[in-house]
C-alpha cells in the first residue's frame, strides 16, 4: 500500500471520474452529479463538524439559500459564473450569523438551534410566494454557456459527442475539484490547525493565543459557503427546486454522509456521500425495504465504529502495518 504514493491514488480517482459518464445514460450521469453536489455540501459540513467540532443541522438550508439565489439571478439573465459567487458569499455571511449561537451554546443545544434555523428557512421559502414561488418552487433555470462549452445543449467537445447532462456533470466535477483543492489547502493551513484545536480542547486553544470566537464563526461561515456552492450547482443541474428539497431530512442526510464516511477525515464526506446516494440505487431491488436496511446498517456502524467507514479502514490498515512492539520487560518494569 505504502509503495504507491497518495497523489497517484488521487490521479487514478480523478481519471475514473472523468471517464465515468462517457457512454452512460442520463440517469447514471445525474446520479453522479448528485453525488458530487452532496459531496461538496458534506465537505463543507465536515469542516464545521469534523474539524472544528461544531454540530450543525442546517446544511440543507444553506443549499437552499445557494440554490434560490442562483435560480433567481440566472432566471433574470445573469450568468451562472456571476450568480454562483454571489450565492456562496451570501451563504458565508448567513453562516456567520448562524455561528453566533455557537459562541454561547455547545453540543445538543447547538444542534437544536441549527435545526430550528433549517425549519425556519423552509417555512419562509414556502410562504413567501412572491420571491420563491412558494411550494411550486422555481423551475427551468438555464444551464450556463461557457462559449465553446455550452452545457445547455448537446455538442461535440474534442471530438466526443457530449449530451447536456454530461457537460453539466463536468461542470460539477470541475467545481468539486477546485473546492476540494481549496479545502485541502485550508485544512493544512494554520487555520486548519486552529479548527482542530477548537475541536480538541477549546480552553487550551484559547490559552495558546487562538481567537476561538473568530475561529468558531469562521468554521460555520466556510462550512455554510460549501453548502451554498452545492446549492448553486443544484439549480442548473436539477433545474427545479422547491422548499421540500431542503427540509430538515436533507440536513440529516448530509450529516449522515459526514458521520458515515468519517467526520474529520478529508476523504470521509466523499465516501459517505457515495454510500448515502449510491447505496440506495444498488439496494433498489429490495424496493421499499432499502431505507430500513440502510438505517439498521447505520445503527450498527455507529455502535461498532463511531468514526465511520474511514475509521474502520484505518483500524484494518493499522492492524496490517508493522508496529512497534513494547518490550516485555519494559512493561513489567512499568508495573513494578
Amino acid at each position: 500500500m505504502n509503495a504507491i504514493p497518495k497523489w497517484l491514488w488521487i490521479a487514478l480517482g480523478l481519471a475514473v471520474l472523468i471517464v465515468a459518464p462517457i457512454g452512460q445514460g442520463n440517469y447514471f450521469t445525474l446520479i453522479l452529479c448528485s453525488w458530487l453536489m452532496f459531496t461538496i455540501a458534506a465537505m463543507g459540513l465536515n469542516l464545521t463538524l469534523g474539524y472544528a467540532g461544531q454540530i450543525s443541522l442546517a446544511q440543507a438550508s444553506f443549499m437552499a439559500v445557494g440554490a434560490y439565489i442562483t435560480a433567481l439571478l440566472t432566471l433574470n439573465g445573469i450568468h451562472w459564473i456571476v450568480a454562483m459567487p454571489a450565492a456562496v458569499v451570501a451563504c458565508f455571511f448567513i453562516g456567520l450569523l448562524v455561528g453566533f449561537p455557537a459562541l454561547r451554546v455547545k453540543g445538543h443545544f447547538l444542534a437544536f438551534v441549527t435545526l430550528a434555523f433549517n425549519t425556519l428557512v423552509v417555512l419562509v421559502l414556502r410562504n413567501e410566494d412572491w420571491l420563491t414561488g412558494g411550494s411550486y418552487g422555481k423551475f427551468n433555470m438555464p444551464r450556463p454557456d461557457f462559449w465553446i462549452f455550452n452545457t445547455a445543449r448537446k455538442s461535440d467537445v474534442l471530438g466526443i459527442a457530449l449530451s447536456s447532462n454530461q457537460k453539466i456533470y463536468y461542470l460539477c466535477l470541475i467545481t468539486f475539484v477546485v473546492f476540494a483543492a481549496l479545502m485541502y489547502g485550508l485544512i493544512r493551513s494554520p487555520w486548519g490547525r486552529a479548527f482542530k484545536g477548537l475541536r480538541e480542547n477549546p480552553i487550551r486553544a484559547e490559552s495558546l493565543g487562538l481567537d476561538t470566537r473568530r475561529i468558531t464563526l469562521l468554521a460555520f461561515a466556510i462550512g455554510s459557503a460549501g453548502g451554498g456552492l452545492a446549492g448553486s450547482l443544484m439549480s442548473p443541474v436539477v433545474q427545479f427546486i422547491e422548499p421540500n428539497s431542503f427540509a430538515l431530512v436533507h440536513s440529516l442526510r448530509i450529516l449522515l454522509m459526514v458521520v458515515v464516511g468519517g467526520a474529520g477525515y478529508f476523504f470521509g464526506p466523499m465516501l459517505g456521500a457515495a454510500v448515502v446516494i449510491l447505496l440506495p440505487e444498488f439496494l433498489r431491488f429490495t424496493q421499499g425495504y432499502y431505507l430500513i436496511l440502510y438505517s439498521v446498517a447505520v445503527i450498527i456502524l455507529m455502535v461498532y465504529s463511531p468514526s465511520g467507514l474511514m475509521g474502520i479502514g484505518d483500524r484494518i490498515l493499522s492492524k496490517l502495518r508493522p508496529q512497534r512492539v513494547v518490550r516485555g520487560d519494559m512493561k513489567e518494569g512499568a508495573q513494578l
Binding site: A111, L255, L256, V259, V296, I299, M302
Partner: peptide
Amino acid sequence: SLIIATMA
C-alpha cells in the same frame, strides 16, 4: 454517534 444512531 448516539445522536446519529437515534436518527437512524
